[in-house]
Amino acid sequence: MMARLIALLAGLCLMTSAMSFFAAPSAASETPSIRLGYLDQPGSALCRIAAKRGHFREEGLRVELVAFPDSAKGLAALERCAIDAGAFAITDSLRAIAGGKGFRIIAGGGTPVSGDPLAELDDTLPAEIEGRAVVVLIAAGWPDTGKQTMIGLTAALIRAHRTRLLDLQSASAAPGSRLGNPLHFNPNPDYYRLERVWRVLGLQSIAMPRDFLANHVYEEIYCDALDRLLDSSADDPVFKKLSSQSVCTPDCCPVATGKKVPQNKTPGGKNQ
């Protein structure tokens, strides 16, 4: 029933989508164009930095930012495909996913930093704070062929995270600087953190398969984006640190001299 609902939503989304890479490429430009919703608050800073500092362009994307006053309005727009992706609060996003909206989380954003020293003693309090953090979601109708665009979008947000850290370093080195630290940023979607919030909110129903949440957290995209950035900047300390914190499936076994797997075959490539 849930699967049918998601399929129906995805179908509707595809029909009404304004996203140009869903449609046939126009003569004017082959560059994928995305409408990215964001919360008009500091937790969405990575989206704004990525736009302002040209990181989306660096990833070959045209991104139009659309501000929302709250997550409910943003998620409603994502559901009807008025936007293609959005950066909204974890709690609202997870509730929408539990309600069968079919969104998938591809990246993280800003998390409020608790000023309460007792917060760590209460298991539910960090989850409540984390619930107010921002994650980046894609619409249910995002096509499979749009995987590279998804990776590009995430890579741009990782670049924005790096830019923000470098800016902070420069600012803190300036004489007389007094920087507050109200938010912690991390572009990693971090399944285990989301699972903790999911559990505290009691969103797992008996009818859901055990991997329901995992099916809506697309960590592979984050890992691929990070790999791509490390391929071109292997010694970058920010990318290296993010890589050391991520839990990605290890590259287990490709053999340089081995038989290549044909890309056009499924499942992977028939050998014998």
């Binding site: 499936t249 081995g258 038989k259 290549k260 797997v261 499942p267 028939k270 050998n271």
Partner: peptide, 21 residues
């Protein structure tokens, strides 16, 4: 038995999960 070669564990496990293997 039909054998399929993969160059990445992530893709392989995803194929089992999706019921393609």
């Amino acid at each position: 038995v039909e054998l399929f070669q993969f160059g990445s564990a992530a893709e392989g496990v995803a194929a089992v999960k999706a019921g393609k293997l």
